[in-house]
Amino acid sequence: MSGSLLVVGGAHIDRRGRIAGTTVMGASNPGRWFEEPGGGGFNAARNLARLGHEVRLIAPRGGDAAGMAVSAEALRVGIDDCPVVFLDRATPSYTAVLEADGNLVIALADMELYDLFGPRRTRTLSFRAALGEARHVLCDANLPAETLAALATAAGARDLPVFAIAISPAKVVRLLPCLAGLAMLFMNAAEAEALCGSRPDDPAGWPALLREKGLKGGVVTCGAGAVVAFDETGTAVLSPPRLETVVDVTGAGDAFASGVISARIEGRALGEALRHGAALAAITVCSPHATAENLSRDLANSYMPLVPDVEILS
């Protein structure tokens, strides 16, 4: 592999309720609950570990059973887990209600603990040692803006590429102060609009708007619509593969990011990296989990023929 990846961000508990029939707002709906460890950074870390990458995770969590569940999951998939534990706090959680077809109805994020992970954490001996051993960094916008800025500065001082996951329209703005220090930001159209203050008539217009904000590279997804990616050399547009069955869309964006990151750190061009991201997202939405348990390099490669070629824009 191309060196170790340090992941700093969200690692918490995901709770998802799936409605059994037609959704009726403002009423009780029959369905089932499902719970598993999750979080943007953690989902990506698990995917990348399953693809064979060496991954170290630094994430805050509480001194409770949920925190222990996150640690056990990290160990199970081969992640080097280095938690920052707040013994008197509860581990963050994300609770979502899904329609029968897997699409999101509403979600609640209980993430206050992440606000305690301040910028001074990036100056500790253990954190600096982890950064010194890394070749690439991935963060997510669950962390405070000051912490993200400090992380980007510390990584930049070591010439380490920094990838970032937007998480939500409300949280992506935390990355505004450090956009210029990111190698690539993964976001959906709503998150990109939160950064730019507007959205283009054509998705191909996203790169111009985001470059004006100082971003050197990014990927903008739009559900089943066209995906636009750009870096300092060009822009690529991809139509995701059409799938007959979608089990659960949770984690699809994190999977897309994982595929692109995996390909980029291995030196693949932007267009090919975009296709790898689409393949991992397709695998994930066909799984009941936020990260596909059966994910492997062979499985990812088997999905590549399903992914259309990208269009390279000048």
Rank of each mutant, 00 (worst) to 15 (best):
P144A: 08
G271F: 09
S2T: 10
I283H: 08
M187K: 11
G40R: 00
V55F: 00
P161G: 06
L125S: 13
A149R: 13
C222Y: 02
L116R: 15
G225W: 04
R264S: 08
A269H: 10
L195E: 08
L151F: 03
Y94L: 06
I19P: 12
C286Y: 00
D254E: 15
C139D: 01
S287H: 02
E35Q: 13
A27M: 10
N188K: 11
R297Y: 00
L125D: 13
N47R: 00
Y114R: 10
R123E: 14
V227I: 14
P30V: 06
T95D: 13
D254Y: 13
A65C: 01
L104C: 10
L57P: 01
V97N: 09
A65F: 01
G40L: 00
G223Y: 07
P200T: 03
L306V: 09
S198T: 14
F86Q: 05
R268G: 00
V173G: 01
A269V: 11
R76H: 14
A252M: 11
I265G: 02
V260M: 11
P119L: 02
L210E: 08
V172Y: 07
D298I: 00
D140S: 02
E311K: 15
A96F: 05
G38Y: 01
A281K: 03
R264E: 00
R123C: 05
L87G: 10
L48P: 05
G225P: 06
F230N: 05
M187Q: 14
N188I: 08
M1N: 05
A300I: 01
L57G: 02
D202N: 10
L113K: 09
N294V: 06
E35R: 12
V285L: 11
V247T: 09
R120Y: 06
A141I: 14
F256L: 15
H12T: 07
G223R: 08
A170N: 13
L87R: 14
I79P: 06
A257I: 02
M184K: 05
A109K: 13
G31I: 06
A107F: 05
D309I: 00
L87T: 14
L75K: 14
A278G: 13
A66K: 08
I106L: 15
R61L: 15
D159T: 05
A66N: 14
K213E: 12
N188T: 08
R76D: 15
F117A: 08
T153G: 06
G214R: 13
T233V: 02
G156K: 04
A129G: 06
P177F: 00
D202H: 07
V173K: 13
A27K: 12
F86E: 09
V173A: 12
L306Y: 10
A27L: 06
G225V: 04
R123N: 04
F42H: 04
A96V: 13
P83M: 05
C178L: 09
L113S: 11
A290E: 04
V55K: 01
A282G: 09
L238Y: 05
A20F: 07
L176K: 14
G102Y: 07
F86T: 07
L48S: 05
E244V: 01
I167F: 00
V285H: 12
E35I: 07
T291E: 09
A49S: 15
G38C: 04
A170L: 15
R128L: 09
A189Y: 06
